[in-house]
Design a protein around this nucleic acid. Sequence first.
DNA 1: CTGAAAGCGCTAACAT
DNA 2: ATGTTAGCGCTTTCAG
Lengths: 337, 337
Amino acid sequence: MVTLAEVAQHAGVSASTVSYVLSGKRSISATTRQRVEQSIRELGYHPNAGARALASNRSNIIALMVPLRTDMYVPVMMEIAIAVATTARTHGYDVLLLTGEEGPDAVRRVTGSGLADAMILMDVELEDERLPLLRQTDQHSVLIGLPADPNGLTCVDLDWSATGALCVEHLAGLGHRDIAVIGEAPAVYERHTGFAERTLDGLRSWARASGVRVLHRPCEGGYDAMALTLARIFDERPGTTGFVVQNESAVEPLLALLRQQGRAVPEDVSVVAICPDQVAVQASVRLTSVAIPAQEMGRHAVEHLVAKLDGRGDDDVVLLAPELTVRASTGPAPAAS
Amino acid sequence: MVTLAEVAQHAGVSASTVSYVLSGKRSISATTRQRVEQSIRELGYHPNAGARALASNRSNIIALMVPLRTDMYVPVMMEIAIAVATTARTHGYDVLLLTGEEGPDAVRRVTGSGLADAMILMDVELEDERLPLLRQTDQHSVLIGLPADPNGLTCVDLDWSATGALCVEHLAGLGHRDIAVIGEAPAVYERHTGFAERTLDGLRSWARASGVRVLHRPCEGGYDAMALTLARIFDERPGTTGFVVQNESAVEPLLALLRQQGRAVPEDVSVVAICPDQVAVQASVRLTSVAIPAQEMGRHAVEHLVAKLDGRGDDDVVLLAPELTVRASTGPAPAAS
DNA sequence: CTGAAAGCGCTAACAT
DNA sequence: ATGTTAGCGCTTTCAG
């Protein structure tokens, strides 16, 4: 293993000079710099991460806590994770992957051991048990998701409430008066995941304001569950002409069932999805949708974190504005029959 | 920050004793151990990761390289990643998340810096450019996926060739004579991803042996691409009654299109999928399928790696046996019309 | 069964 | 603009 000292010797300079060439923390004459860089290349030197972390008290690692359960938009999680990893690299950080399994203990462990300089938490619940710890230790962190009380925390999320409102606004604008919302699995609501409840709030308050009715039904994924849910919806509200779907694994079943029942999309019923663009485009009907900006969320989270670590920090909440893309699944409400 | 020295002082023992209590590398009297453990708890001590890595030359971190691209079955990747992370934790390791973006450089960086003790590579191509590096450095590693030449490497993978054979065996056993294979996107074959080509090999050689015909068509995901592909298949082989699908985003479109064309599953055509069980179960027809054992692959990979790190190593190739579950999408071939 | 002490490779004062 | 040096907190000989 090549050490800094060996590089220094090879280049005929002191250890600190090599260190400073690497860090750029003080000015080095061009010729010295070149000699050192040359030696580094020739010897194939790589700074030792452990030694660096010990001496500098910085690991250059960001911990990312992903949820253990996979009952949600897995591809979205993955996309966020990848965005976090690549963005982190551009800032000189690596990413440590933690699953939710350890729970709050993981926070203690990582904080206490100095394994990571900061952490990003995904899938934050409204009353998340990890939050008290984050507040009391002065661990730098960013949440992807918005808890009930974001005070003293930095959060990045899609503005779910605005997302819900946007969906209703679009449908109401097309003349739909009875809207059904196909939601996530009941478990998602039960554990008070912020995004699900906030979407609902946005949906309902815009509905109230614009005089349309919304009926919300959680739904497990899959064909059978969707069939049941759909039957109940039409049973209760036969006049339903608009759908908002926030459940990736219900999208295709819903379309198939509507087709099967002879309800044409968008002539008879309109469907707005809240899902990644890829899903909207690949569906059997190209779906009007509000995209989930996974990459931006990951990128924002890292950039905020790096800013904090560099002392340019600011505890605040960033809500990304939703964007609705009109595709082939929505149209004017049919004349009342 | 609490240090080992402080714990030692608090417990009235020397630093080394505390260290040995932690590592268990030499025997400690019960009373001493308890005093030390007590102090550790009272002071809330966490060993410093950097110092530990520096002194022991072990980081207790495993690097996991995931593919950057997301044109494949993302949930499988995620499931593997999570299985890797949780299994690693049970062995005292953390996981560093690397994207394929850096390519072979990441291998050098991680190896050279001692950031990780070992690495797991996913999405290995037949002639993967990272492999020469792995062979020449004595970096411990495990591949998830099987390259063309696994010599000197440890690999874990599903036995894709047997998987292909199993699918054909099942369909041929039911009397199907003309089988169409809906494959992954062309790009997947072009970059010579092992699993895709091996599945095909297995499919074809069993077909040859059992006297059935197979027609292979790669397919981009989605409804439109599937429609085109299906039309071409029936055009070329009107007598096709069996399908093997190895492309998650083609599954539901295929079922929908068959339904739409009045071909009943499984009465008129049978479908076998190669996909995670969850997909098979949630599809609009419960699919006979060969499962992709994501969790086992992740678990195996970690356990092999840990064995190697502990000197119990063995460079070898572990191919997991495929299992076919019969569900509602396959049945006897219809009498020739 | 326990202590003392020598580093591990690097960073960051403190010098000059 | 560069060199010297004192640690960072832990592991692990070497010595009892």
